[in-house]
Simulated scan of single mutants.
Amino acid sequence: MKKTIPAYQRIKNAILDNIHSGKWQAGNAISTEMALAEEFGVSRMTVNRALKELSEERVLERRQGSGTFVAQQQFNHTFVEVRNIAQDLKSANRDYEAKVVSKRAVTADMLDEELRRKFDIDKDHGVDNSSHAPVLYEVKIIHFADGQPIQFEERWVDAHKVPEFMAQDFSVVNTSEYLIAKSPLERGSYTIRAIAAPDEIARFLQIAPQSPTLVLRRQTYSAGQVLTFVKMWHAGDRYQFSGEL
């Protein structure tokens, strides 16, 4: 049974879609509460809740007597901190390079159970529309430090929220940096595990099969839904995670 989306959440999703598509950009005024109430056939109280939550999430900025505006996007860098391997390596004075292994659009019938669960996609998704319509975009990238592969990235992105994702050259544009610039991220979660390298991963990282790897699995959210899910495989003897408490 398909979940019913509350009215305030539908309004939030519509506002975020307008921001993702570029219709409303940073600093632009959005539709008034009255206009949104008429458009969605709801009370102004329902609209107010949607705008209040997006303001608390730093997506919108409400100015008394002036209206509601799209917030400047720099909040994304601090509200959800996402590590960027390109910046990390360059700041360590190491030569960085990225090689795109593959890019493709993924339809609902191509998804495994993990991706269906992550993105909350039903098995019958797309029956009413074209079964060939993409629901996710997938990209696989090898990241090099001083000519040696140090990370293999497998990433999936909601095709509806970031429609221009596939047009980017990710040998030049960093995926995390691009998504932060384009999408108002709300929150994220991650895990790190030690896993013996499968044959394919070992080949990309130029290590022996079953060698130790550190795998970071991360998902970030927008409008209460997963925007992107990524697996980052690191050669265990070439990479470590560190920080300060």
Rank of each mutant, 00 (worst) to 15 (best):
A37N: 04
A37K: 03
E38R: 15
F40I: 04
G41P: 09
G41R: 01
V42D: 03
M45H: 02
T46D: 09
R49E: 03
K52E: 00
E53K: 15
E53T: 09
L54W: 03
L54V: 09
E56W: 11
E56D: 06
E57D: 10
R58C: 04
V59I: 09
L60F: 01
L60E: 01
E61S: 01
R62A: 00
R63Q: 07
Q64A: 13
G65R: 07
G65Q: 09
G67S: 04
T68L: 02
T68I: 06
V70E: 07
Q72S: 10
Q72V: 14
Q73M: 12
N76H: 08
H77I: 14
H77N: 09
T78S: 11
T78M: 09
V80R: 08
E81D: 06
R83T: 14
R83G: 07
I85Q: 02
I85C: 05
A86Y: 08
Q87L: 12
Q87N: 13
D88M: 06
L89S: 01
L89A: 04
K90L: 13
S91G: 05
S91D: 06
S91W: 11
A92C: 07
R94Q: 12
D95H: 05
D95E: 13
Y96R: 01
E97C: 06
A98V: 00
K99F: 10
K99C: 05
V101E: 07
V101D: 01
V101G: 00
V101F: 10
S102M: 11
K103W: 02
R104T: 03
T107I: 12
T107D: 00
A108D: 10
A108F: 15
A108G: 13
A108C: 09
D109N: 13
M110H: 12
L111H: 08
E113C: 05
E114K: 14
E114F: 13
L115M: 13
L115I: 09
R117Y: 04
R117F: 01
F119K: 14
I121R: 06
D124K: 15
D124S: 12
H125N: 08
H125G: 01
H125Y: 15
G126E: 13
G126I: 14
D128T: 12
N129T: 13
N129C: 04
S130T: 07
S130I: 06
V135A: 05
L136N: 02
K140C: 11
I141W: 08
I141K: 15
I141S: 03
I142W: 03
H143M: 11
H143C: 11
A145W: 03
D146A: 02
G147I: 06
I150H: 04
Q151Y: 03
Q151P: 00
F152N: 00
F152C: 04
E153N: 06
W156Y: 08
D158I: 14
H160R: 05
P163L: 11
P163C: 07
P163N: 04
F165I: 06
